[in-house]
Amino acid sequence: MKAAVLRDDQERFSVEEVAVDGVGAHELLIQTAAAGLCHSDLYHLRGVFDIPRPTILGHESAGVVLEVGSEVEGFAVGDHVITCLATFCGRCERCLSGRSYLCAGTHSQRAPGARPRLHQDDAEIHQFLNVSSFAEQLLVHESAAVRITKDMPLDLAALIGCGVTTGLGAVFNKAQVRPGETVAVIGCGGIGLSAIQAARISGAGRIIAVDRQPDKFDVATKVGATDVVDASRYDAAEAIRELTGGGVDHCIEAVGAPATATAALESLAVGGTATIVGLMPSGKTFPVQGRLLLDDRRLQGAYMGAQNFRVAMPRHVELFLSGQLLLEEMVSSRIGLDGIDDAFDAMEAGRAVRDLVIF
């Protein structure tokens, strides 16, 4: 199969032929239909996080099942599926306490010494986040996939594999926005736009979109924002407080930077909640003014929507099919494997919302 391989000391991809191993007892072989480009992929591409190389990045994808392992239950050849990095064992304390999205997921990897899932002439190509989506085929553990209705377009389904589920879940499950409440979302990428939509679906009375790229405000308004703040011209927290007469009930941070995390907390009204969703590089910290917490403000994190993806993703599909969730509006471009580098350059410059690799 063809795949976009990231090699040592490189920040550009090489499209190469990669071999896929035989399907294990608890594995699925999937023909990739589409894969989304996520900002966390960019961090790994640029070396912000250290990962084994050579590797195939990508973790947001959808496709069609080609082969099913001998002990797999609940999947059949021809099923349409979405993949997810948040594999779950169903046996550990986190899984059994209802937080399967925090499962360590070691069960989903092949045992040490076993043949790698991906290789070239017996040299391992490392699998990224249990998925490695930038490839024509995916060989994954069964717990990395969820079956969806064939009514759902597979290219748009890929978006649900990470960004959409993360943004929706941050609002539905962690912030638990109620009708009439005010919400600010900092960052209008795939996660932020999904959070805006979740706030709209939840009945928020006012939804403020914040970004440094004004070009994104048209999309933000289409999917539900009632107000916008250009953070390249104004102090975000101050502008939010001024717009609302004191602050918002909820602020969703979808950038992953110390400055935006600080702004999220400082934009809150008394009793408000800041939910940090953006992936922040290791070692980065941000100041918290203690007096803000004394007024019953709350600071919390949210990972992968804070819900088991096998429960959440089919519901998100239904939201799309019913017209409540808008996905096509979030797509910046559809590209082939050879367009990935240019697409990541656009993402780094802040020009892209969500690019899709189509296979």
Rank of each mutant, 00 (worst) to 15 (best):
G339F: 06
P287D: 12
G336D: 15
L325K: 01
M330Y: 06
L326N: 08
G336Q: 14
L299K: 11
L319F: 13
A349K: 05
M313C: 05
G283L: 07
S267T: 03
A346K: 03
A346Q: 03
G350M: 03
V270H: 04
V353H: 00
S267L: 06
G290H: 11
T275V: 15
L293N: 08
G271D: 01
G278A: 09
R334D: 12
R298L: 14
P281M: 02
F344M: 03
I340A: 08
G283I: 04
E328G: 13
L319M: 13
S332G: 05
N308I: 09
V288N: 11
Q300T: 15
V317S: 04
A343C: 07
G339S: 09
H316F: 15
R297F: 04
T275Y: 09
R298I: 11
L319P: 07
Y303P: 03
E328Y: 06
R297W: 03
G290A: 15
I340T: 09
G271A: 01
R291F: 15
V331W: 03
R297H: 07
D345R: 10
A346D: 06
R354P: 00
S333K: 13
L327E: 02
L292F: 13
E328F: 07
S322K: 11
P287E: 10
G301L: 08
E318N: 14
G323Q: 10
N308P: 08
Y303H: 14
G283W: 06
K284V: 07
A349D: 02
L279Q: 14
A312T: 09
I335W: 02
L337P: 05
R297L: 03
G336C: 09
F309Y: 13
E266F: 02
V317L: 04
G339R: 08
E348R: 07
F286P: 04
D342N: 12
L268H: 01
T273V: 10
P287T: 12
F344P: 01
I340L: 15
G336N: 12
G350L: 01
V288A: 11
R298F: 11
V288I: 15
V288D: 09
H316S: 11
V331G: 06
L293Q: 08
Q289P: 12
L268E: 01
L325Y: 04
A269V: 00
A274Q: 04
M330A: 09
R297A: 02
L326S: 09
V353L: 08
A352G: 01
G271P: 01
Q300W: 10
M330Q: 12
S267E: 03
S332W: 04
F344C: 02
N308Q: 12
G272D: 00
E318C: 10
A264G: 14
I276N: 02
M304Q: 13
M347S: 03
I340K: 05
Q307D: 09
P287R: 11
A352V: 00
S332E: 06
S322G: 09
A349G: 03
G290M: 13
R291Q: 14
N308W: 10
G278F: 06
G350Y: 02
R310T: 12
G272V: 00
R310M: 12
